[in-house]
């Protein structure tokens, strides 16, 4: 058997891979940011005493968690098209990924909210804090600190899953790989390289989240222990 690997041809295309990697990171960044917002609102909604609100949030979460990401992407893509709305592939990909990760973060953050002992909330009520102040100071921050590891893992998974947006021609890393390999007939080398780049992106994201954690959770910075 003769394994004949030629990386030189692939590496010549490095600017394309770099563009793809940056686009993947952009998608991950947007979905992380908006997904966090959706997750917090969704978690508040799921815990709402309003049956309609909690039901709607529940349906959203279950619908997303029980369908494939690729199908969700197509639904957004063709859904917008059939409404006569024209968006770039990037915008559609970002929207679909955000909707997808928002459902998972809703569940993660809700678990965090549920883990705050009733006594904490009563203590805050006893201090005359308003409902919004209690949610912000006593529920949300410690809840997010508690679930931060699962939350950030979810965002890294999302970045990896964003490769399926190549199916609607978003020009992210996997899409770049697809046309480089069809151009060069060096498929194996191409995907080895791409796998390595994804590993680097994962590590970059994990390092970023670790640093962010130190900034936004002073207790963790000082004591170094999980909440």
């Amino acid at each position: 058997m003769n394994l004949n690997l030629d990386f030189a041809t692939i590496l010549e295309r490095w600017p394309a891979f770099l563009d793809g990697a940056l686009l993947t990171l952009q998608l991950a960044f947007i979905a992380t940011l908006l997904g966090t917002v959706i997750g917090v609102l969704g978690a508040i909604g799921r815990r709402s005493h309003h049956p309609v609100v909690s039901r709607i949030c529940g349906i959203y979460v279950e619908a997303i968690r029980n369908t494939p990401l690729l199908v969700q992407i197509f639904l957004v893509y063709f859904g917008l098209a059939s409404l006569g709305l024209k968006f770039s592939a990037f915008a559609v990909a970002a929207a679909a990924l955000t909707i997808n990760v928002g459902a998972y973060t809703t569940e993660i953050i809700r678990a965090g909210f549920d883990s705050i002992p009733r006594g904490q909330i009563e203590a805050a009520e006893g201090l005359a804090l308003s409902r919004a102040q209690i949610y912000w100071h006593v529920v949300m921050w410690p809840a997010i600190e508690k679930v931060y590891p699962s939350l950030t893992s979810q965002f890294v998974l999302l970045m990896l899953a964003s490769s399926v947006t190549s199916q609607i021609s978003a020009e992210e890393l996997t899409a770049v790989a697809n046309y480089v390999q069809s151009d060069t007939y060096r498929a194996f080398e191409t995907y080895i390289l791409v796998a390595l780049v994804y590993i680097v992106l994962s590590l970059v994201m994990r390092a970023g989240f670790w640093l962010l954690g130190l900034v936004i959770f002073p207790r963790r910075r000082r004591l170094g222990t999980p909440l």
Binding site: P117, G119, Q120, E122, A123, A124, E125, G126, L127, A128, H137, V138, W141, P142, E145, F217, R219, L227
Partner: peptide, 17 residues
Amino acid sequence: RQDVGIVFQSYNLFPHL
């Protein structure tokens, strides 16, 4: 509740602060 202070058996300090 601004006029009344209440202290419970389980101190309920906010752990992240």
